[in-house]
Every structure is written in structure tokens, then in C-alpha cells.
Amino acid sequence: KWEEIAERLREEFNINPEEAREAVEKAGGNEEEARRIVKK
């Protein structure tokens, strides 16, 4: 599940997989929260 979210974030925000994974981890697997983290 987290991998899927990280993949979507990576494609959408054009970030590297590591950044995407970190955002999802910080968000506890919550996609909306992960998006907010990435946008900062």
C-alpha cells in the first residue's frame, strides 16, 4: 500500500523514490498527509 502511494507521489510531484517513501512514512501511510509533506 505505502509503495503505491509513494509511486503516485513520485510521479505527480516528480520527486525521487526516497523522498516519496519518506513522505509516506512521516504521514503514517496517509496519502493526503503525505501530499502536504511533499508540497512543503
Rank of each mutant, 00 (worst) to 15 (best):
K40Q: 15
N14T: 06
R36N: 15
A20C: 04
E4H: 11
E7M: 13
A23V: 08
E18Q: 11
N16D: 14
N16M: 14
I37M: 09
R10F: 06
E22P: 02
I5E: 02
E4M: 11
G29E: 02
G29A: 02
E19L: 13
E3A: 12
V38W: 04
E18P: 04
E12Y: 07
K40M: 15
R10P: 01
F13G: 02
V24P: 00
W2I: 07
E3V: 10
E4K: 08
A23C: 04
I15G: 02
E33P: 01
E7I: 11
E4N: 10
E22N: 13
E32W: 07
A6V: 15
A27T: 06
E25A: 14
N30F: 06
P17V: 14
N14L: 09
R8M: 09
E12C: 08
I15R: 00
E33K: 06
I5H: 01
P17W: 15
E22T: 08
K39G: 11
W2G: 04
E4A: 09
A23P: 00
E7T: 12
E3L: 13
E33L: 11
R8Q: 06
R8G: 04
P17L: 15
A27F: 01
G29M: 03
E32S: 09
A27L: 01
V38M: 04
A6K: 05
E32G: 06
E4T: 07
G28T: 05
E4Q: 12
P17R: 12
E33T: 08
G28E: 07
R35S: 04
E7G: 08
E25K: 13
R8T: 05
L9Y: 03
E22D: 13
N16W: 06
K1H: 11
F13Y: 10
K1P: 10
R35I: 10
K1I: 11
E11T: 13
A23G: 03
E4I: 09
A27K: 01
I5T: 04
K1E: 14
E18R: 11
E18N: 12
E3G: 09
E25L: 15
E7Y: 09
E22S: 13
E11N: 13
L9F: 02
W2A: 06
A23T: 04
I37W: 07
A27G: 04
N14G: 15
V24C: 05
A27Y: 01
E25T: 10
K40D: 15
R10V: 15
A6Y: 07
N30V: 09
E11I: 15
E4F: 10
E22R: 14
E12I: 09
K39V: 13
G28S: 11
A23E: 02
E18M: 11
A34Y: 00
F13S: 02
E33H: 14
W2S: 05
E19D: 08
A34N: 00
A34E: 01
A34P: 00
V24N: 01
I37S: 07
P17N: 12
V24I: 11
F13P: 01
E32H: 08
A23D: 01
A20G: 02
E31F: 12
E11V: 14
F13T: 03
I37R: 06
E19R: 08
V38G: 03
R21C: 07
R10G: 06
R36F: 06
N16V: 08
R8L: 06
L9G: 00
A34M: 01
A34H: 01
E19S: 09
E32M: 08
E25Y: 14
E11M: 15
K26F: 08
N16R: 09
G28V: 09
I37G: 04
E7K: 14
A34K: 00
E12T: 06
K39L: 15
L9V: 04
E4R: 09
N16H: 11
K26I: 12
G28L: 12
E12H: 06
V38S: 03
E32A: 10
R10C: 14
G29S: 01
E33R: 05
K26R: 10
I5G: 01
K39R: 11
E19G: 05
P17D: 08
G28A: 10
W2L: 07
K26G: 04
N30L: 07
V38D: 02
F13I: 02
R21I: 10
V38I: 15
E31S: 04
E33W: 10
W2M: 07
A23Y: 04
R21N: 07
R36P: 02
R36W: 08
K40W: 10
E7L: 13
K1Q: 14
R35L: 05
R36S: 08
K40R: 11
A34L: 04
W2Y: 08
V24D: 01
K26W: 03
R36V: 09
V38H: 03
K26C: 07
A20N: 01
A20W: 02
E31P: 06
E12L: 09
E3P: 08
L9A: 00
A20T: 02
V38N: 01
A6L: 09
L9D: 01
R36E: 15
E18T: 12
A27W: 01
E32Q: 09
R36A: 14
E11Q: 15
E33I: 10
G28F: 15
E12P: 00
A34S: 04
A27N: 00
V24W: 04
K40H: 12
N30H: 07
E12A: 07
L9R: 00
E33V: 14
P17T: 12
W2F: 08
N14E: 05
G29T: 01
E11W: 14
G28N: 15
L9P: 01
K39W: 11
E25M: 14
A23F: 05
I15Q: 00
E18G: 10
E31Y: 15
P17H: 13
G28P: 00
V38F: 06
N14M: 13
E11H: 12
G28I: 07
E18L: 11
N30I: 09
R36M: 10
A23N: 02
G29P: 02
K39T: 12
E31A: 06
E12N: 04
K26L: 10
E25W: 14
E22H: 12
I5D: 02
E11F: 13
K40I: 13
K39S: 14
I15M: 06
A6M: 15
R35A: 06
I5V: 09
R36T: 11
N14D: 11
I15E: 02
E32Y: 08
K26N: 10
R21E: 04
R21T: 09
I15T: 04
E33Y: 07
R35Q: 04
K39E: 14
A34Q: 00
G29Q: 03
N16E: 13
R10S: 12
V24F: 02
N14C: 08
R10D: 03
E31G: 05
G29N: 03
N14I: 04
E7N: 12
E22K: 08
N30S: 10
R36K: 12
A34W: 00
V38T: 06
R21H: 07
N16T: 15
E19A: 12
E4W: 10
E19I: 11
R10H: 07
R10L: 11
E33S: 07
I15S: 03
E3S: 14
E31M: 09
V38Q: 02
N14F: 09
N14R: 02
E25G: 06
I5L: 08
E11S: 13
E25I: 14
R35D: 01
R36D: 11
R36G: 10
E7A: 10
A6N: 03
I15W: 02
K39Q: 15
R36L: 14
R35H: 06
K39Y: 13
K26M: 13
V38E: 02
A27S: 10
E31L: 13
E12K: 05
E18W: 11
K40N: 15
R8P: 01
R21Y: 12
P17F: 15
K1T: 15
R21F: 11
K40V: 14
K26H: 07
E25P: 00
K1A: 15
E33Q: 09
A6S: 07
E3F: 12
R8I: 07
E19K: 08
G28W: 11
E18Y: 12
E11A: 15
R35K: 08
K39A: 14
E19T: 09
E31D: 03
K40F: 15
L9E: 00
E11P: 01
A23Q: 03
E31N: 02
E7V: 12
E7Q: 14
E11C: 09
W2E: 05
W2Q: 04
I15P: 02
K39H: 09
A27R: 01
N30K: 05
I37A: 08
V24M: 06
